[in-house]
Computed example of a mutant assay.
Amino acid sequence: MQDDRLSLWNITKYQQQAKTTKLDEVARESAVTVQINGEQYATIVCSPANLELLVIGFLASEGIIRTTNQINTLSIDKDKGFAYVELDFPVKLETKSERWIGSCCGKSREFYLKQDVKTAKTIYSDMELSTDQATKLMKAFDHQAEIFDRTGGVHQAALASSDHIIESFIDIGRHNALDKLYGYILKHRIPMKEKCILFSGRMSSEVMLKVSKMGAGILLAKSAPTDLALKLASDLNITAAGFVRENSLNVYTHTNRVYQKINKNVTI
Rank of each mutant, 00 (worst) to 15 (best):
S97L: 12
S75D: 11
Y41G: 11
V32C: 04
R189A: 10
L54N: 07
A224I: 06
R99E: 14
V32Y: 15
G242E: 01
T255P: 00
L159F: 01
F169L: 08
Q40A: 15
D132V: 07
A229V: 07
L129F: 01
A120C: 13
I165W: 06
I44L: 15
E29L: 15
V85Y: 05
D126C: 06
E62L: 01
C196A: 10
M138G: 08
T131Y: 02
A60D: 04
S108H: 14
Q156Y: 06
V211D: 05
G57D: 01
F89V: 02
V207L: 01
T95S: 13
Y14F: 12
K136P: 07
W100M: 12
D132W: 04
R257P: 06
V211T: 13
S223I: 01
E62N: 11
A158K: 00
T131V: 12
P191H: 02
W9G: 05
S168N: 11
S61I: 00
T151C: 08
I268R: 09
A134P: 05
F169T: 05
D149W: 15
Q17R: 05
R28T: 14
V32G: 02
A145V: 04
I76A: 08
A229P: 04
D149V: 00
A229L: 03
M1C: 09
D4P: 15
I268P: 09
Q16S: 15
L87E: 05
N256D: 13
A60N: 10
K114W: 02
F82T: 14
T67V: 04
C105H: 14
Y84A: 08
S30R: 11
I65D: 08
L186M: 10
T73C: 00
S7M: 13
F199D: 03
A134E: 05
Y252C: 07
G81H: 00
G215H: 01
Y184I: 07
I123Q: 09
A83K: 04
D163T: 12
G201Y: 04
I65P: 05
M203D: 09
L228S: 10
I185G: 07
I166G: 05
A27F: 08
D79M: 09
Q156C: 02
F169V: 01
L93D: 02
T68E: 07
D149S: 12
I56M: 08
S200F: 02
K261D: 14
E25K: 13
Q16D: 14
K213A: 11
S212N: 07
V91C: 03
I262M: 07
T33K: 11
I165S: 06
I76M: 01
T68P: 03
Y124L: 11
K195L: 04
K139A: 13
